[in-house]
Amino acid sequence: MLLTLLAVSFIVFAAFEIIPGDAAVSRLGSNATKESVEALRAQMGLDRPFMIRYLSWLAGFVKGDLGTSYSYNMPVSSMILEKLPITITLTIISMILTIGVSIPLSLLIAKYAGSKFDKVSYGVNQFAMAIPSFFLGILMSWFFGMVLKWFSPGGYISYKKNFGGFLSYLILPAIAIAIPKCAMSIKLLRSAILTEAGKDYVRTAYSRGLSTMEVLYRHVLKNAMIPLITFWGMAVADMIAGSIVVEQVFNIPGLGRILLTSISNRDYPVVEAVILLIAFVVLLMNFIVDVLYRVVDPRLRKD
């Protein structure tokens, strides 16, 4: 896990070495004199060799000092701490929507497997799976913002000022993020439910006088959710990474936004920190997925 993070941090650092552009230039503007750029580079330590800079950044990181943002002139850690709740809230809402909608819908679809309803929902689902979230986001902000005027596109309320208002601005982006994931969940869950429904224990459950809905909710659902755990875990990591684009579309100043601005400003301490955070979330989700498997499936527990 540590090795993975180390490798990610090195690759990001190296990428900044390779791509053209310079933090000092972007800070001073392109018509600054060569001397002033050189002076600022020396002041920022950019004139040192690559490995030295990487190691000194790494030393700071290990000590908990994420460095200072070049473009905002504030500590990276406080920038991230301020933006993180926004992206996390967005991800949580998206995840609740994904799971909360896909479970009842896929049970319903599985119950009527083979019917017209099943076929129509298959078509809708394939379509929903294929639309990228950012495009959905653009459509939605145009439709709900410009046509219906339910909200002003680009508007945003800080979670510090008014948490309810903040949430209301996150609903649409969360829906945009959730729709493709939800469609994929429904597809996977439907087939897992149908596989489970053919198993012997389901017949046993029917023999006790349970109704179809009771059999599905009490017996089939938990078993059918086991193969979905990995997908949902990866969906969380994906949503955090994917927020980069969706936050841009809905003008939400979350992690995704600072990542984009920092990349164009060559503000590598910020970029490093955000990317490491995303990598950390991916690894954390892997771990949570493993734990959840054990919680849900008693056969995997050590006795």
Binding site: Y201, S207, N223, I226, D297
Partner: peptide
């Protein structure tokens, strides 16, 4: 009530 041939699969593994 009914019992079946395969006791290994007739019970719900997660309950």
């Amino acid at each position: 009530c009914m019992i079946f041939q395969e006791p290994m699969t007739a019970l719900n593994p997660t309950m």
